[in-house]
């Protein structure tokens, strides 16, 4: 999977490259509009992570160029501008998703996974992880061919884990993923504990391995061999 990261802040750029590389993506990164333009005209990417405010031009223009060239690269716009107009313009121009800074790398990873899945299999893909199989389209999870009855939130958490295998996910990252930024509940993690406890129990009852590990009360990790 090839990903292009367009971000002018070096520390930000580097962290995304580091994280996504460990998630087995092939990452290329640029830090200006001009470089980005050259890259997208020469290569095809599965997903482009695109900052809007770039030296040399607006990221929104790059989306226009992609659409003009009839390129099908997936695009996630990342911007510190939470302004609603930017978001709308970005999505109208044909971006696949929009993330507002500051975001968690795990959140970026799960969004990229969703875009790639949509583009490659039209959403009809199966995700395998150990003895867990997830059918996204049918929203069905099976462990050793036994169907799990998961709630909406538990399903969401599982997908989040699957997009960030063997990574430690902080409670904050999971809570933000579940509730969104607007909820103002992210500092209360009690509810998370209940969800994860239930999810774990359901997997174990179905005969699956206990792959969700708690990390010293700070976060959780989906551990696969």
């Amino acid at each position: 999977m090839k990903i292009l990261i367009v971000e002018d802040e070096p520390a930000m750029n580097q962290s995304m490259v580091d994280y996504l590389t460990t998630m087995n993506y092939t990452c290329e990164s640029v830090s200006s509009y001009q470089e980005a333009l050259e890259k997208v005209e020469l290569f095809d990417y599965d997903c482009i992570v695109l900052d809007i405010m770039l030296p040399g031009g607006s990221g929104l223009n790059l989306i226009k160029v992609l659409k003009q060239d009839r390129k099908t690269d997936g695009v996630i716009v990342i911007s510190a501008k939470g302004a609603l107009e930017d978001k709308l313009v970005g999505l109208q121009l044909g971006a696949d998703d929009y993330l507002t800074k500051p975001f968690h790398l795990s959140e970026l990873s799960v969004r990229i996974a969703a875009i790639i899945r949509r583009r490659q299999f039209n959403g009809q893909s199966l995700i395998h992880a150990g003895d867990i199989t997830v059918n996204i389209e049918a929203k069905q999870v099976t462990v050793n061919d036994k169907v799990l009855e998961l709630t909406q939130k538990e399903f969401q958490i599982l997908l989040f884990f699957l997009a960030n295998r063997n990574r430690v996910l902080s409670k904050n990252a999971i809570a933000l993923h579940l509730l969104g930024d607007e909820m103002d509940m992210a500092d209360n993690y009690d509810f998370l504990y209940t969800h994860i406890k239930n999810l774990r129990r359901k997997i174990i009852v179905a005969g699956g391995a206990d792959v969700i590990k708690s990390v010293y009360g700070v976060g959780y990790k989906l551990q696969l061999p």
Binding site: A11, M16, A80
Partner: peptide, 19 residues
């Protein structure tokens, strides 16, 4: 924009630190 960017850097690097 200017304030969210350093915050984003802190957050993503904390994510990395956690690994």
């Amino acid at each position: 924009h200017e304030m969210q960017t350093p915050l984003a850097v802190i957050r993503t690097h904390t994510d990395l630190l956690l690994q």
